[in-house]
Design a protein around this nucleic acid. Sequence first.
DNA 1: GTCTATATAATGATAGAC
DNA 2: GTCTATCATTATATAGAC
Lengths: 203, 203
Amino acid sequence: MAFEDLTARARIREAALEHFARDGYDRATIRAIAKTAGVSPGLLRHHYGSKEDLREACDHYVFEMLHRVNAELLTDPGATAQTQQTAKPFGCYVARSLADGSPTVGPIFDELVTMSEAWLARADDSRTDTPTVDRRVRAALVTAMKIGIPLLHDHVSRALGTDMFGLEGDRLVALALLDIYSHALIDEDVATSAAAGYEEPHR
Amino acid sequence: MAFEDLTARARIREAALEHFARDGYDRATIRAIAKTAGVSPGLLRHHYGSKEDLREACDHYVFEMLHRVNAELLTDPGATAQTQQTAKPFGCYVARSLADGSPTVGPIFDELVTMSEAWLARADDSRTDTPTVDRRVRAALVTAMKIGIPLLHDHVSRALGTDMFGLEGDRLVALALLDIYSHALIDEDVATSAAAGYEEPHR
DNA sequence: GTCTATATAATGATAGAC
DNA sequence: GTCTATCATTATATAGAC
């Protein structure tokens, strides 16, 4: 990362994003963030106030960044690979923040759900049967499931035999996800009969 | 929960499971756990030593509990509903521990992956095409995805409009998962062509 | 804008009485 | 087995000099 070229304020933000994403909000300390940014803890406070304020600033920054990336993808769908690569670290930050219970990232999840919803709409169109569960509910679950992968990256990487954020691991994950998403994981009849047991709780 | 009937040692364990699962390891404090258990912080130390030791004891307890439940399901597949209901809180604890990076829960994830693997094997048998990605890799991702749901329960519940651990929410999630798992989410041809872009990184 | 030094609060760990 | 009281550490928050 072009790290030394940034202003102190920006370096602090970058360092905070890194620490919050990797260590989580609680384990990340002001001191460690300041050290990574190459500044004193005092300067961090001068620019951002409290630790909670710093997190909010990071949340807002990522929020706008993702919106910018999204808008870019909509106007120029060609630059997908490069742009998505840029957005990936932010994705990890968002995942961690969502799991950490950050007060301000909720809306990001809701937007991701809306994106999943649009995506599910296409899948629903090619279905022969009618989905029994509201699309937004299914979209919420698909979204949470997707976010679970970076959240458990340590364990996923162990199963892969290679770091899932590395070149090889990244490719493996992408291919596997395409395979998973494009195939049913359980038989439709089995699912239907299993669902029958849930349909009417009081019988 | 039959909470007051337990020995102090057991009450402490139950309280710790609750706090670790809900607040995460870092936010959970010895004092708060002791208070929930109705004992002094000193007694907690007397029984479990350090906070890290307490976590390890919880991990081991849950580990054996899940094995017991699993064995029960294998011998008597009829008691599924009741037994699974009992195991659910432990599932939340495991999910949180995995995300928190507990040193001793790794093997649990690996076992869950193995279960997913057996499950995927059946799905693979009914496929017309040959999966391009190793089954264990896919199983690891499916497992991480499944665990992502309880990890983001706050946000999922918000999307559902009701607590996903409540009666109605639980039913909704179960039905939605059955629907999701039994249908492809993206078109197979689209997936195949997308995968083509990943197959050979250096072309 | 940037630093050093310090105050204050919370937490895990410990010692010792009953 | 159980408690109270205390220590030591760590982290955030703050004040003030340059």
